[in-house]
Design a protein around this nucleic acid. Sequence first.
DNA 1: CAACGCCATCTGTCTAGGACAAACTCGCTT
DNA 2: AAGCGAGTTTGTCCTAGACAGATGGCGTTG
Lengths: 314, 314
Amino acid sequence: MALNDPDPTPLRIADVERETGLSKDVLRIWERRYGFPVPVRDAQGRRCYSAEQVRRLHLLRALVDRGGRPAELMRESDAVLAGRLQALGAAAPVPPVASVPHLDEALRHLAADRPEALEALFQRHVLEFGLRRFLLDVAVPLATGVGEAWESGRLAIHQEHVFSDCLLRFLAEATRRWRAASPDAVPRSPRMLLATLPGEQHLIGLAMVETWSTLDGCACRSLGGGLPVAEIAAAARAQRADIVALSFSACFDPARGQAQLAMLGDLLDKGCQLWIGGGRTADWAPGSARVQCFRNLADLGPAITAWRAARGAG
Amino acid sequence: MALNDPDPTPLRIADVERETGLSKDVLRIWERRYGFPVPVRDAQGRRCYSAEQVRRLHLLRALVDRGGRPAELMRESDAVLAGRLQALGAAAPVPPVASVPHLDEALRHLAADRPEALEALFQRHVLEFGLRRFLLDVAVPLATGVGEAWESGRLAIHQEHVFSDCLLRFLAEATRRWRAASPDAVPRSPRMLLATLPGEQHLIGLAMVETWSTLDGCACRSLGGGLPVAEIAAAARAQRADIVALSFSACFDPARGQAQLAMLGDLLDKGCQLWIGGGRTADWAPGSARVQCFRNLADLGPAITAWRAARGAG
DNA sequence: CAACGCCATCTGTCTAGGACAAACTCGCTT
DNA sequence: AAGCGAGTTTGTCCTAGACAGATGGCGTTG
């Protein structure tokens, strides 16, 4: 009976791919090489994974992401793996962010699943020091800190999601308020379009660029994440954007990014610039004169001024 | 030379998968069956696609998504395909939503790439009729209308993204304002956790549920989109959620959804309910007593009241 | 002792072509 | 006109092999 009815709800390889983020190829090759996971097969010979196996796959993935090596991890029991993940968190003694007291506090709120406290902290900091300093002193280092905390196992994925949601809302609202409060008569330029490429999930960088640029008087419009280059180009044309700004996280493959960037460059109008930032984009080859890499938010101001000067003169 | 240097920036099959959303399997089988796309190969025999081919693949995908059949579409030229896509838009004469004047207006703003006008319309409607009526009379039908407009080719993907971004921000801010304006003394219950499963990109439904439930006095916390069930369960435990609410769009495969739902049901605490809605979830088999399907937003109110009654009595 | 380069191994992605289920079309029958 | 069965289309999954790029260890050299 274990063969003809392996599970009331068969988890097929595509489901496991979505759920764990491990590609079908990886799932198959792990099975071939390491003997795990070996799923039950249905009548047609298709793999049917158990919830148990998926749970272990999550553990394995978490450890592989943090630099573990599959061949070694596969030998360990679930308990050992879970312990190792916890140990990773405990072993990371002094996170570099924690030197600043309020960042440490923010991370503690997050680890304790208290997003309200986090938002209150944001609110206070903005009222005391203003949005620009909030971005530079809190948002950017905290985003880095959360990334590191996740890598070292101190924060779960869902906690990272909570952080993301929290900061995203906060910035969106701050931006909206600023926009509402500035006089309509001011012509806002350049027109900036914000997006991330397919495969890029992190929207935080984008939101920070939007807030900063809006403070600097740009007309920003966000397209959200995961948009194919063809669609970005179409949007840029439709909205007559002067600048398309893309954000990348550190895990985005540079080679892929640059290939897609080149493609986007071809599709955009000649007058439209391409600004990129985040992750390790600073190391990327510029490729085209129209592509500009940004190492940090503060560089946006001068670049916008320069754009206006060039446009005003030209 | 065309062989050893097919392209300055080789687009490999994984890139094309990300960019077009067509799986590697589909790309390979289309090549085998229909003779398109036939990419150049690099020195190792790997497929290197041209930007030209990717452009055509976008067209093909758009038409296949709208019910076209690959075998037939493959014979046509790019121009014919583009024309056919446009014709689809023109052929859809009276969208069902357009019967209500302000919805028609909203769609026109969107088609004309004027998100500011859309937001102004939202703002006006809320001030005149209130948030609940806005959700029922504007947000829900407009979301449906945008989906239909996309299907029929009247709206591009990037315009759908703009709509999504616009409504998402609007709802987030409205929710926040409501929360800020309600007295702190009121104990907010039930504690509701909102998320979508991996593979589900649409966050609109979730945002609408959040706004509605917040109005009804729930303590909502959004985890954003694309979270594995294991993480959702972990978050529910960490935040001691009473209810986990999931949103699905119509394109989500019911069989997959139900399998993942069953898995999530196993992982959650017994006291935690599972509320689902959106798309065609109404047709899904409930599976467990803890799973409750919602056909529309208005049903949330009674369900919340019922939950409170049961909890208060128990 | 540190730094550099080379080599072996590990790991993920890609290849090929075959199989099959689910969905859809079409034509026949009621 | 509506319902049903046969045939076709289409996407997903299968096996098994190849290889590039990363990683880590070792030996040599400054």
